[in-house]
Design a protein around this nucleic acid. Structure first.
Lengths: 343, 343
DNA sequence: AACAGCTTTCGAAACGTTATGATGTCAACC
DNA sequence: GGTTGACATCATAACGTTTCGAAAGCTGTT
């Protein structure tokens, strides 16, 4: 018959004929229990399939060994890859990860943050949907936070991000070297530092060559295929279409590609396409997609490292100064970009 | 100065000038506290940003309001989509989800399962890597489990799966109707009920038309692009290549597509390609990919519903009989499949 | 006046751990 | 032979909730 409830240390202690404290000491490898007693206790533990109650332990120690990860959109492979990094690094250090998808809704994000606080996670990794909303809760005596992918405006906080400015600067320079002068940029929401920095990077490269990004060539999308498709159509059918399109997110690039096929515009001979974020299909899609690849997995692991450092070993809220870790991206040149067509 | 630790009900009680039990009653909306006192307490709660300590609560009530989700491979968009369903449905019912990626390693899977038990999650959703290994721990007095995507061999358990047999039967029938006679099938690991059922479905359709799947046309892959690519190469360069390739996983289809482009074999005019699992890129890739789409998100929500039902309202392990929920898939015909070439 | 039956509030005992200080044992030292 | 210290074990008090039964304050009935 199935037991209603698991065994406790009390049960183990009784079976082993020792005190509860001794069991506890064995479970936690304190190394202060004699070898023969240790063996007896371990046998009892094994026999009962005892496993300590993390809740009770957390109540006592103030540590839950759980980390919270809140992402804007788990549908985006970028965040999945980051999640992998986070999880691997977390379990490496004996932590579990509570994953929350805020689905691009700022209210849901706040609800998740509250829930994580209630669960008393030891730390939070946050790719914010709405950095303004989040900042308000920041001051409270909550778990330390590390931001990923995005720096909440002006705030001095721990974060791990790509060098977005640099990456875009280099990407656009590459396009310019191919001879492109009319470059369109499709960005994400401009409330995000991520988008802002990327656009700035593009601007810098363009300005250095005495070019500009025309007003009508800077578009804002929502990071889904559809929006790329829509914007692609509009861009390509305009009176003076760009010769290169730079998408700041790879799913939008898929939309562009679809628009191109539909309109029978050859790529890259007529229009080049380049995209932020690599993907496993980038190589396979036709034409294969030139991308700027972020070290996404490493972003996850680095964020956990930083977080764990700021959690510290004991319950003391060690006040280290906030760190911003900048990761380098790499340009992966493939088939979708080429020299500008002589028209 | 930041507090070391959050406020407790004791603090709230003191501030509101009431007893702890009263605070508890208010927090839990027991509806037994007078209106004016309720207001006072709520004010105190708000003022202190009090949030109850879930660990302590769980210790007392035996419920943690956490669900564990263990998947083989979070890299696979299929599981991400299921995860979305799980999460949405979970928070809908006031649960959080602890996500674990077992990375196709059975030992890691068991470690996750142990960790979840230690955390005393109220229930577990499991897409098993190794259903044999898992079954051993099953009997113990642990949280109820619902399997997703895969039925652990012969065991009578709760699960939510696609009607894999049926889906493949229909898919292959469609290929046969197009005139294909030499159909290759690339399956996943045959220790999985999923793979087995799918292959059986293919076999049935083929046999009904007095055809066979040749030995050398039934290959086993590992669900990653590379393996599709490798197998594709080998299949296409064999002396008597198939006219249609059916991949039981969509990333392998990407590999096939790459092999086709590389070998300059036109699709679908020379070889048709069909794949299990839909993807957002399926429409965009060229040729667009014919797929069998599983209702993945619904698989997640249905699994949570089933799990929550078997958790029941109280701590009593309600012994409902195990249910197997079968979901229907749909065939999405696109550009990668066509009539067999007259050779 | 005494009591019964409500309703509202409270006190105290769990829940399963860990940590601290106390107790007991034994060997070694003067 | 006592004192010291080192070591191994234990009893007990937290940790922050929920829950149960008791207490207190009413209203209405006998």
């Amino acid at each position: 018959m199935a037991k209603q409830t698991s065994y406790t240390m009390r049960d183990v202690a009784r079976l082993a004929g020792v005190s509860i404290s001794t069991v506890s000491a064995v479970v936690n490898n304190k190394g202060i229990v004699g070898p023969e007693l240790t063996a007896v206790v371990q046998k009892a533990i094994a026999a009962m399939h005892f496993s300590p109650h993390a809740g009770a332990r957390g109540l006592r120690t103030g540590r839950t060994h759980m980390l919270g990860l809140v992402v804007q959109d788990i549908t985006n492979p970028f965040f999945v890859e980051a999640l992998r990094g986070v999880e691997d690094q977390a379990i490496e250090h004996g932590y579990e990860v509570l994953v929350c998808n805020s689905n691009d809704q700022s209210d849901l994000e706040l609800r998740h943050l509250d829930a994580l606080h209630t669960k008393r996670v030891d730390g939070i990794l946050l790719a914010p949907t709405d950095s303004y909303a989040v900042r308000e809760t920041l001051g409270r005596d909550r778990a330390p936070i590390v931001f990923i992918d995005c720096i909440p405006m002006k705030a001095k906080v721990n974060c791990v991000v790509t060098d977005n400015f640099d990456a875009c600067y280099n990407g656009v320079r590459y396009l310019i070297e191919l001879g492109h002068q009319r470059i369109a940029v499709i960005c994400g929401r401009l409330t995000h530092s991520t988008s802002i920095d990327r656009v700035e990077g593009c601007r810098k490269a363009v300005q250095e060559s005495n070019l500009v990004i025309r007003e009508e060539h800077l578009r804002q999308g929502d990071s889904h295929i559809e929006s790329g498709y829509r914007i692609g159509h509009s861009l390509l059918q305009s009176s003076d279409p760009p010769t290169a399109i730079f998408t700041l997110n790879n799913r939008m690039a898929l939309g562009i590609l679809r628009a191109l096929t539909e309109l029978k515009i050859p790529c890259p001979s007529r229009v080049s396409v380049m995209s932020f974020d690599d993907a496993d299909w980038a190589e396979v899609v036709s034409p294969s997609l030139t991308t700027i690849a972020q070290p996404t997995y490493e972003m996850g692991t680095a964020a956990v490292d930083l977080l764990l450092r700021s959690i510290g070993p004991g319950p003391e809220q060690s006040e280290l100064k906030p760190q911003q870790i900048l990761l380098k991206s790499t340009l992966r040149i493939r088939g979708s970009t080429g020299p500008v067509s002589k028209s």
